[in-house]
Design a protein around this nucleic acid. Structure first.
Lengths: 247, 247
DNA sequence: CGTCAATTCCCGTAGTCTGAGATTCTGCGA
DNA sequence: TCGCAGAATCTCAGACTACGGGAATTGACG
């Protein structure tokens, strides 16, 4: 345990399950002496990564909120995509959720989510939530546009040695490349249908996708066509503005 | 340079001004050997705090986005306050911005900002942005509710030895305690008027405030009364649900 | 396949972190 | 205001890690 991982082993303890820890609890959980955790926690607190709450408990601190804002402010994808999303979701004229997601290392993470006024859909997509890499239209539309080498590295751990599944997945991606969009149902959230199109900016090194999610039983053929059209045109606008953007 | 600060000196380089750095640039800026920065950057990347972009440049990584989500998901203030904010902003019936801010260590940081449909106000308030500690209704409403000892420590660095200013500031806070709200104009953003009320939960160790911001020239006496009423009732609802919340 | 920049590796040394226990601080109730 | 219990910090010698300069390797691109 050294360098950053020392600090991360502490930070990773804070999750949905338990967001409030005492030093003693952390020490027990990590099986590290109390005095060591005290030192680590003190340093994390000093830099705003942890904050004291009540009765000797600590929770995640403001530094993360600040850094996230810094990313939102400087990320061309959020800057260019944000305004587009609101219009996009409104244009559908149905309860729906618009999502702009992005490949971040080896995971797909939602960067912007826009709920259409009145949409009470229960999607898993919300900013900052890691998404399954090989399931759902959002992720597939991203993977479909990647260069072969990058793709291979990503799929390796996901499929392991199952050559058959890997081959059929590659076929699926190839179909997305041809048609320009991807539709899936229930792969991430049950009862929901997602339509996604690829978005990318080689100049910025960003691989992303733009998706719309509606209730599966609300989907009609004409709605589907409309959604695809909306997505394709929004995506090309977005790609255009990304091209001009510089960070 | 040791422990966390080694990593932070790198991370702090990434700001609005420049969000995209090469290792060489970082090394020059920090006056540290290149190989050391490479190691630091590698470690930060491995944990998702930095991400390679293009041409040997790096930018802030997805870990911050994920941790921020974790905070949003687990923070009772965001959980209880979020839904309230939308209604609050809508009720005003004027272009306005609703802000829920909070004391985080020694700084006030906005936790939720809700723009009323059609409000194009240029407020500085947005989630994650650090705010001036002693200026603006939002901050003053927070400070007004703090225990004496805590307050003293916070004001020490802000006012230094200027006992006169300190005394008048304390008087101001005392007036807020009596009236239950605070109104300021142009202290943070020119031409804007803010009304704020304190919110707190002793059980959770949270000191916060709820504010509404409108254009100064749109303010009338009756609107002001309405806003104060809305804020006071929202704040008491919020305090109530915070009391029941547990993290 | 060759080129050039980006990145990693190497290794002795310097300096940091570790961990157990003693010590000091702090908040809370009387 | 005082005293108490738990929280937080301090101490110190020894183990281990990071540092830094330069060589070696990788990898992208033509």
């Amino acid at each position: 345990m050294s360098g950053l991982s020392r600090f991360l082993s502490v930070l990773r303890c804070f999750d949905e399950t338990k967001s409030n820890w005492t030093v003693q609890e952390l020490a027990d959980r990590l099986e590290v002496p109390t005095s060591t955790i005290y030192r680590t926690v003190r340093e994390l607190s000093a830099h705003g990564f942890l904050e004291p709450s009540t009765e000797a408990h600590y929770r995640l601190g403001s530094a993360f909120v600040e850094f996230d804002r810094m990313i939102r402010v400087t990320d061309p994808l959020v800057q260019c995509g944000g305004p587009l999303m609101r219009d996009l979701a409104a244009e559908v004229g149905q309860p729906c959720v618009a999502v702009l997601a992005r490949l971040y290392g080896d995971r797909v993470i939602c960067a912007v989510d826009e709920r259409y006024n009145g949409a009470d859909l229960l999607t898993s997509y919300e900013r900052g939530r890691p998404m399954p890499l090989v399931r759902g239209a959002t992720s597939k539309a991203i993977l479909a546009q990647l260069p072969a080498r990058r793709l291979r590295k990503l799929l390796q751990p996901a499929f392991g040695s199952d050559a058959k599944k890997l081959a059929s997945f590659r076929t699926e991606l190839s179909n997305i490349r041809k048609s320009g969009y991807c539709i899936t149902e229930g792969e991430v959230d049950p009862e929901l249908r997602g339509v996604a199109v690829p978005v990318s900016s080689a100049a910025l090194g960003i691989s992303a996708s733009l998706s719309l999610i509606v209730r599966a039983n609300a989907m009609t053929e004409s709605l589907e066509r409309r959604m695809i059209l909306l997505l394709v045109s929004s995506a090309s606008m977005l790609a255009g503005s990304l091209g001009k953007a510089q960070d």
